[in-house]
Design a protein around this nucleic acid. Structure first.
Length: 256
DNA sequence: ATGGTGGATTTTCCA
């Protein structure tokens, strides 16, 4: 089973690239982030035509997450059970056979010290609570998405320039580690110990063309899922070419 | 150097 995550930065703007990628990569499960449209606008027919079931949780203009699956969903949940409920649509989860899959789009946070940064840290606390109370981590649990946080400086093209900056600050990394402490490993690191592997490059600085990226998209796995995982890789080609997203997809192969 | 590009929606927000 091939499980993947991709922040598409508008599913409608990315539709031709997404269709092309689904046809070539042939993932069984896809966690999408930043749909940037309501569910009525989701290009359902084009994706169903490729043999996927769709569970979407979108909103106007911002955020929005979905899960695509070749196999039918046994169960789906929409959003966190926090009080008050999340004002943004950033989390969706589904049971697909014996695997529990969550697609997450973590708050960006704008800048360290800003109100949005404080919100990000609180939101990540709430995500931890949601996952902790929802799942039995003896099962196969996969939490994939745009976490908007690097694990350590191996995930950063220029650690000096990014030191304690947004996406790289210690409080953000502590909260990402707190998710790992639930029993959710960074699956990419099972196969790649070296740095220099990135999933996001800023449009504004033409980061992709200059090799200036960060690894902020992750596939976290419970021990049973990680045991079944034979490889994890970043599809950099999907970040190249005409009208790309600013993120590359991450893929993981699991033995049945 | 607080820019730059890209998306959605709109003369601006967000990333």
């Amino acid at each position: 089973m091939l499980v993947s995550t991709w922040n598409v930065n508008s599913v409608r703007a990315r539709l031709p690239r997404l269709v092309q990628w689904l046809e070539s990569a042939k993932p069984d499960v896809v966690c999408l982030q930043e749909l940037k449209c309501v569910d009525e606008q989701f290009p359902r027919e084009e994706i169903e035509a490729l043999g996927y079931q769709i569970a979407a949780y979108g909103q106007k203009t911002y955020n929005g997450v979905a899960i695509l699956s070749k196999r039918r969903f046994d169960d789906v949940f929409y959003g966190m059970r926090s009080d008050p409920p999340d004002s943004d649509r950033r989390v969706i989860g589904a049971q697909i056979g014996d695997v529990f899959v969550v697609s997450v789009y973590v708050v960006n946070g704008q800048e360290v010290g800003s109100p949005k940064y404080a919100y990000k840290l609180d939101w990540m606390n709430r995500l931890r609570d949601e996952l902790r109370t929802r799942y039995d981590f003896n099962e196969k649990v996969i939490v994939a998405g745009d976490f908007n946080v690097t694990f350590d400086d191996r995930d950063v093209h220029d650690p000096k320039a990014w030191h304690e900056k947004i996406l790289c600050s210690t409080p953000e990394r502590e909260r990402l580690s707190a998710l790992v402490d639930l029993g959710l490993a960074d699956s990419f690191r099972k196969f790649h110990a070296d740095g220099g592997h990135y999933t996001w490059w800023d449009f504004r600085t033409r980061g992709f063309q200059r090799g200036m990226g960060l690894r902020i998209d992750h596939i976290l796995m419970s021990p049973a899922a990680l045991d079944a995982c034979g490889d994890v890789w970043i599809d950099k080609e999907a970040r190249d070419g005409e009208k790309p997203s600013d993120h590359a997809p991450v893929l993981a192969r699991l033995e049945p």
